[in-house]
Amino acid sequence: MQNNQHNPFGIKMSKKPLTKNIVTLTALVIAFAVMLVLSEAGILSRHMRSMLVPVCINIILAVSLNLLVGFLGELTLGHAGFMSVGAYAGCLFSIAMKEILPMAIRFPLAMLVGGLVAAVFGVIIGIPVLRLHGDYLAIVTLAFGEIIRSVIINLEFTGGAAGLKGTPQDSTFVIAFIVVMITLILIINLVNSRHGRAIMAIRDNRIAAEASGINVTYFRMLAFVMAAFFAGVAGVLYGHNLSILTAGTFDYNKSIELLVIVVLGGMGSIRGSIVSAIIITLLPEVLRDLADYRMLIYALVLIIMMLLNASPRFAAVKAQFSPAALKAAAAAKKAAKEGNANE
């Protein structure tokens, strides 16, 4: 198995990650406020309003998957599995506590329970899985996702193939948005911290990272468990947004859809994941006629993005339009102008 080469996707580290991320978060808050006002004022159609929570859920899922694919540099295809574990744990908790606890306490607790159970699964699965790399890791996470799904379908207390009913529908746009913000702040902090740099060092060159004293297993596990936790939380939100929770929805296709979001947004870019999660979630609803072609478009997005990333010509074009290049071009133009004036 080959090692990752240096900077595999040309991911550039911004010099000022903090300001950049504050801009992202502020833009997100403004977008949230606008959507909230529009939906309260009744300008938004009922259909669009029903899309608000799924958008938030997909943002959480995409950002947490990006932690693995973009920052750790390992492809996992079992994200939907963690989501389902979290969803079932949280929903079962809510059903049990329905009469006992008020919603304001029950729902955050349910999310915590869902996230923690998913994180525990992350540890259990991570111990064997994280000994592997690349293709093997992808296929084993896929296998775990499928095992989780078939076990849930065969269990009694999860409602089996018919699905789990009776979950209180607690997911609202406001709550979902708060969870999105908490997730983003935590993940952005992780990525920009010492731990985040260690994770990225493992991505860029595992052996060099190990030689520099980075505990590779620990940091891989950390990223894996973090991602599982947030996938679980997103699953709880998902479960409390629907009247019936069925295991069938958390299949391989769901994991691929998440992968498409991450790849389209740019691996290793949190802002990109947010934007593309919004686009990919809303796209099939906005372009109803394209619904049949949705899967085909997803597939093409994956292939074309990878081919473009590998093509040197596209890299040249991209470099031409990067902010730094544009600034340099403007400066050169200005200098040329001044030179003319002096003559």
Binding site: F9, V69, L75, L259, V301, L302, I303, M306, L307, A310
Partner: peptide, 12 residues
Amino acid sequence: SPPLAVLITAIG
């Protein structure tokens, strides 16, 4: 390209 890119393309 790195293995991850090839794998994602194959899934695509």
